[in-house]
Design a protein around this nucleic acid. Structure first.
Lengths: 255, 255
DNA sequence: TTTTTTATTTGTTTTTTTCTATTTATGTAA
DNA sequence: TTACATAAATAGAAAAAAACAAATAAAAAA
């Protein structure tokens, strides 16, 4: 009986079967939107960092666990954006290739070869504070420009595109972009972040006017680049002011 | 061994374990937003129509299967809005109560008593075309005003609220409301739908101007109510025009 | 000091949205 | 058959936002 074989796998003792979790970890550097990818040992196969849910673990906690393992960060902005459940999502062949690349044999009935429904989150992290670290199966964990990504395993390319689409929507009605910014940044930095996510050019003057009018940016310093021109101001996102405004907004809705 | 006992359950032969699917089916009638609920036999326990995913079935197909069973409709507007995976989502006690209400004993190790992660969709249907039908375990399947719902089983109240929040967002950037409208409707009908979903009053004159300016409404007839006032126009949603505009929009993005 | 470059600010025009008022259609009743 | 009440629809003014254009400011180099 197939089930009994599968249940002997140690994975099945610990994790919920047929469900996985994948994270699209976004960062921003050099005016480019980056995604954190893993490469499996001895292969050119790339994938999103993912994992499985402990039987006694909240879904969200399992994502945080993965994020911590991969970026060393906690208290990260996290958003669930979709669950992928095509019946094609059974990747025994791919797992076999990965196993054989490190000289292991792969049991086609292995727990991990079954069909998986995967719950996906995107995370917005400060690129400059993250230390990407590969897992035991990977020899590389690094950032890739979202426009220059390699082909990913499974349906992960599609998942990244959905994550981006979802982030784009969120940008319109919530101030989430600052989670991708370093502590201090110029208006140009911020604008190019918006531009990459939205996939279109914005007008500098209007962008600045709008951002400043939000009243959540604190002008801290100037950024001397050594260039032959006026130095750009450095801004800081004022989290306290933002939270105050959120509260006021919540109150005014009731009125 | 617990696993072996569980695997003997016929449910485990057919369905993916630990994953369920729930649908929040929205309808609109008498200027009220309605949700389709099931009541379990001999109880006052209400729940969303849900089910499980066949091992060889796409996630989305399983939702459509449930929708068809419950509303008799196909080609329904469907949107995945969230997956709920708290570790508390194991409802053996509740299932026991439901079983005992119809004089059955309940095995606490039953397949259905395990922890479930549930993938949730909302559906927008034409109230006037749906024939709600209960399943074998239910003695009632009917519409409830979203503001006058009974307490639901499990975490289904929370799920409905999330569905509404998600629909509200969608309303802002996609013309989905027409899926809830009958073939013909007055501007007032449409406005009150927007108002219930958004949870706020809109200005009649602005609403009308904006809707008409979209160029997707076809004025068909007048609705004589017998009231001592001008008769309201009846409109029809022009799906063809809408799809044309979608195409044009897609083209213009590339420019 | 002047020039060049990019950041930032200011102002003007255009478009969109909001607010206010008017006109239209319908049934009722003087 | 004419005034009246009611609600629908439209039109126009006011305000706000977005798009566009220009000017000013700061920095380094010629």
């Amino acid at each position: 009986m197939q089930e009994i074989i599968l249940n002997e796998d140690p994975m099945s003792k610990r994790y919920l079967p047929n469900i996985s979790v994948d994270s699209v970890i976004f960062g921003f550097h050099n005016r480019q939107l980056k995604v954190l990818l893993l490469r499996f040992k001895n292969t050119e196969m790339y994938a999103l960092p993912g994992g499985f849910i402990d039987k006694g673990e909240d879904l969200e906690d399992s994502v945080k666990r993965i994020l911590l393992e991969r970026t060393g960060l906690h208290d990260i902005y996290l958003e669930q954006f979709g669950t992928f459940g095509s019946k094609q999502r059974a990747y025994g062949e791919v797992h076999k290739a990965v196993a054989e690349a490190i000289g292991k044999t792969f049991d086609p009935n292995a727990w991990v070869a079954q069909r998986f429904v995967t719950v996906c989150y995107y995370a917005l992290v400060d690129f400059h504070n993250t230390i990407p670290s590969p897992d035991p199966a990977s020899d590389l964990c690094d950032w890739f420009d979202i426009n220059e990504m390699p082909n990913l395993m499974f349906d992960h390319n599609e998942i990244v595109q959905q994550a981006l689409a979802s982030l784009r929507l969120m940008l319109d009605h919530k101030l989430v972009a600052f989670n991708l910014m370093p502590d201090m940044f110029t208006m140009n930095d911020l604008q190019s972040l918006y531009e990459t996510i939205l996939g279109k050019k914005l007008l500098r003057t209007n962008f600045q006017r709008k951002m400043l009018s939000l009243g959540i940016l604190e002008r801290v310093d100037k950024q001397w680049t050594g260039g032959a021109h006026k130095a750009a101001y450095l801004y800081r996102f004022d989290k306290n002011k933002y939270e105050e405004m959120q509260k006021e907004e919540a109150n005014s809705i009731g009125k």
